[in-house]
Amino acid sequence: MKSVLYIFTFFIAFSMQAQSKYEEGMKKAFELWGQGKDSEASAMFERIAAAEKNNWLPNYYVALVNTTASFKTKDRAQVSALLDKAQKALDIEFDKQPLNSELLVLQALIYTGWVAFDPMTYAMKYSAQVTDLYDKAQKADPTNPRAVFGKAEYEMGGAKYFGSDTAPMCAEVKRSIDLFGKFKPETPFHPKWGLDRAIETLKDCKQ
């Protein structure tokens, strides 16, 4: 009985230690990202992903860090490298969870990165896929505010370009803000970004 209890206690202690290392690593990676050290944050998330093969979040953040970084540059080689890295990380988790709403949103964001970089080349290729991905993300999780806001923001960009009415998109932005208010991430590390941008977008709607 004592040996069984010892093994159980050891297992619990080991699990707590592993969890602690995961939490420490994630916190450090977010800290680096917050300091604008995108490549260091990405590398940290990659190391965590290698150790946490059954956890989709580290690779999700590898993809998100590199995707958001791609919007900061107009250098073709750099954009291509960042978005390719993001896609490879996302593909690892997409193969396991093809109906994960957050992964669908991130795939749409990666395609948006290509469209934003070179609309003439990539808009025709990816625009329909972007809206379809956001639709799938909303269907997979109707409470996901990023799925609602992402689609509204993307369609608003097209409406402004063609001089169309943006009122329907603004209504969806408002709906996304309502969803952000109710959204409760599963853990401190689950996606919760987007509210600030949605609020700023709604201000533009009212101008």
Results as ranks from 00 to 15, higher is better:
F183Y: 15
K182M: 07
A51E: 15
A147S: 13
R47A: 11
M1W: 09
A13E: 12
S70D: 03
K206A: 02
T68Q: 15
V173Y: 03
H190I: 00
G34T: 09
T112H: 05
E24T: 06
Y60R: 11
D132A: 06
V115Q: 00
E155P: 05
Y122T: 02
G34L: 08
D91L: 00
L195C: 04
A51H: 12
L104P: 01
W193N: 04
V148F: 15
E93N: 06
R76M: 05
G36P: 13
A167V: 09
E52I: 10
A29N: 07
G34D: 07
M169V: 01
A51Q: 15
L202H: 01
C205N: 10
A147W: 11
F149K: 01
W33C: 05
F71N: 02
K203Q: 10
M44A: 15
F149P: 02
Q107C: 03
M124S: 15
K2A: 04
K136R: 15
D91F: 01
Q17I: 11
N66I: 05
K136M: 06
A171N: 14
E31Q: 10
Y122M: 03
A89Y: 07
R197T: 04
P142M: 09
W33F: 11
K85M: 02
A43H: 03
E155N: 06
V105F: 09
Y126P: 10
G158S: 07
A137K: 13
W56T: 09
D204K: 13
